[in-house]
Design a protein around this nucleic acid. Structure first.
Lengths: 192, 192, 192, 192
DNA sequence: TATGAATGAGTTTTCATTCAT
DNA sequence: GATGAATGAAAACTCATTCAT
C-alpha cells in the first residue's frame, strides 16, 4: 500500500487531507457522478486548479478515498477470535461493525454507493476483502464443526451482519423518515 | 399527482413503458447523476428528442419510475395480518420482502440509490410510506402488548427485516464477491 | 476505406465538409496543438458544440483530414508508368507532384506539419504509403537494371523529388521572404 | 536585441544552456504550441518556476533558441566563394548544408517548424537572412553572366538546395518509414 | 537561486434541452 | 409522432504565470 510514497510537505499533507475530507462529505452525499470538483473545491475552500494540483483528477480523489477507507472498513472483522467463545466473538463483531456504521456514516455511505454502482473502482481492492472474509468464514465453520453454534452458511452470517449493521448508516434517512423515535441500537435478543 | 392523467394512445403507452424499462436499467446501474439521456434513449432504441417527447425531462422519467415503483415496494407490508399468528405473519412479511428483492433487483437498486442520496425526490411520496409503516408497527406493538412476541422496538424490527432483505439485492455484487457458494436463502433459525 | 460508412444526410455532408475545410485552413496555419476548436468553429461559422456534434473530438477532425488528404497526396506516384520512358516518367511524376504542392499548399503544409511531429497519428495510414513507394521504387530499380537510367538508390530519388517539390509549398513563406522574384517553377535542366 | 547583455554568473550561464538544450529537444519534437513549460522543465531537470526565473516566458525561451540557431543555420552559405570554381563552390555549399542538416536534426526541425507556422517570431531575424541570400544569389548570377554555369534563377538554385538538404533531417521519420535501407547520402550524380 | 503552492484564463468535452422539419 | 441538427451551460481538466518563502 505505502510501499514507496514520496515524502510530502506539511502543507501538502494538510491540504490533501482537507480535500479528502471535503470530498468524502460530497461524494457520500451525492455519489461520484453527482459530485463536481467545484463542489469539492468549495467545500475544501481551495481553488479548483489547486484541488487538481493535489490530485490528478476527480477519479484520483475518489480512489484515494476508497483505498483509505477500506482499511477502516475491514477492521471489525479482525476482532473475531477463533479461540474465543463463538457467541461472544460474533456479538463483538456485530457491535464493532455497528459502531463503525454509526460513527462513520459518511464513509459507510461512500462505500455503499460504490458497491451499488457495481464497484467499478474497487475491483482490485476487493481481493483483500475476500481473503479476510474467507478467513473469518472458516473460523465460523470451525465453530459449527465443533458444535458450538448452529449450522448456517458462514458467509451468510457474516453478510447478514454486515448488511444489517451497514444499513443503519446507509439508509439513515430512510429510517429516520418512518420511525421518528429510534432509541438506541439494541441487539439484545431476537424478538421470537 | 396523477389526479388528472390525460388519455394516451396505444403507441404512447407502449413507448412510455419502453422508456421506463430502459431508464430503470440505466438508473439502477449508475444512479441518477451517472446516467445520461443518451444512454436511456439508446437502451430504449428511441431517439433522444423522442424520449423527451414522452417525458418532459430526465427528472420526469426518474420521478415517474420512483412513483410507479413505490407501490410495488410497499406491497409486502400489506401482508402482515393483525389477526394472524405473529411469528407466522412476520415470517410471511420477510419472505415476501425477500422475494421482492430477489425478483426485482433493479427496482431495489433504484430505490436504494435514491435513499442513499438522501431521497431528494422522494419527499412527497414517502409520506404514504410512513403511514403504512406506522400502521404495521402498531400491529407489532399490539402483539407485544398481548405478550405474543418479545418486546423490541417495532420500527426496529420492520427496518431490520427491510434492511436485511433489501441488501441481498442491492449489494448483490458485494455479496457475490466474497461468497461464491451462497446456496439458498434460508431464514430457518438464528445461529445461536 | 469506405467499407461501411453509414449514409449521411445532405446537411450532414455539407457541414462536415465545411468543418473539414475550416480545419484544414487552421491546422495548416498553426498545427494541431496550436489550433483550438474555437478557431475551427469560428472559421466554419458553426457553434463549438455543433462542430463536436459532427466530429467526436479535435483529434477526430484532424485524423479525418489526414486520411482524406492521403489519397490526394499519393496520386502523383501513380503516374509513373513502368512501360514508359524513364526520364519522361520521372519528370511526369515531378511535374505532377509540383503541381500538387503548388495547387494545394494547405494540404501540403498539413502533411508536412504532421510528419515534422513524427507522424504520431499517421502510423496506420502510412502502411499504404510505403507499399506504393516500394512499388514505384521497384519500377525505377528495374529501369536501372535495364541500364536505362543511372544507378542511384531508387528510394532516394523518389524522396528527393518529394522533398524538393513539397518544399515549395511547405516553405512558401521562407522562400517568399528571401527571393521576391521567383518567376515560375522551371525544371528544365540542372544548372551544371 | 542582444546589444546590452548583463553579465551572468557561471551557474546562470550553465542553467540557461541546460534549459535551452532541453527546450530545443522539446520544441523540435512537438513545436511551440505543442510543448509545455512542464515538459521543458522536466527535460531540464529544473523546477518550473526556476525555468521561468531564467527566461521571462515560454516565448522568450523559444525566441532565444531561434536567434542562437540562426547563425549556425546560415553558416553554410558563407562557404560559397565568388572566386572559386562554380560547380565546386555550389557542391561545397550543398555538402556543408547537408552536413548541417544531418548533424543538427533538432535545430533543423525547430527551424522548419517555425517556418511552417509562417515564421511568426522570425520576422525581425529574417532580415539578415535575406541579405545573405541576396549576396550569394548575386554571386551565382555573376557566374551565369560569365557563362560558367547554366542559367537558372539563382534564388531558385539556393532554395532548391536548401529544401533538398534540409528535408533529410526535417522529414527524417517520413523517409525512414518508406525506405528502410537508405544507405548513405550520395550526391554523386544525377540519375539521368 | 530555487521551489512548493496557487490560480486566472483558457480549452476540450459533455449533456440536457430546444429547434425545425 | 419522430428525428437530425443545434446550442447554452456547465464540467473536467490544462497551462503559463505568479506568489511566498
Amino acid at each position: 500500500m505505502s510501499e514507496h510514497v514520496r515524502p510530502r510537505s506539511r502543507i501538502q499533507q494538510k491540504n490533501r487531507q482537507i480535500i479528502l475530507d471535503a470530498a468524502l462529505r460530497e461524494f457520500a452525499a451525492r455519489g461520484f457522478a453527482g459530485t463536481t470538483i467545484d463542489q469539492i473545491s468549495e467545500a475544501a475552500r481551495l481553488s479548483k486548479p489547486n484541488v487538481l494540483y493535489y490530485f490528478a483528477s476527480k477519479e484520483a480523489i475518489y480512489s484515494q478515498l476508497l483505498e483509505t477507507l477500506l482499511d477502516l472498513w475491514l477492521a471489525p472483522l479482525h476482532i473475531m477470535d477463533p479461540a474465543g467463545e463463538p457467541k461472544e466473538q460474533i456479538l463483538a463483531y456485530m457491535h464493532s461493525k455497528l459502531a463503525l456504521s454509526r460513527d462513520f456514516p459518511q464513509e459507510s455511505r461512500l462505500f455503499a454507493n460504490e458497491i451499488l454502482q457495481g464497484a467499478p473502482r474497487l475491483e482490485a481492492i476487493l481481493g483483500g476483502l475476500r481473503a479476510l472474509v474467507e478467513e473469518k468464514a472458516a473460523v465460523i465453520a470451525q465453530w459449527m464443526e465443533e458444535g458450538r453454534i448452529a449450522r448456517v452458511d458462514p458467509h451468510h452470517l457474516i453478510i447478514s451482519i454486515w448488511a444489517l449493521t451497514q444499513h443503519y448508516a446507509d439508509f439513515e434517512i430512510q429510517i429516520a423518515r418512518f420511525s421518528a423515535p429510534i432509541a438506541r441500537l439494541s441487539t439484545k435478543r431476537a424478538p421470537f
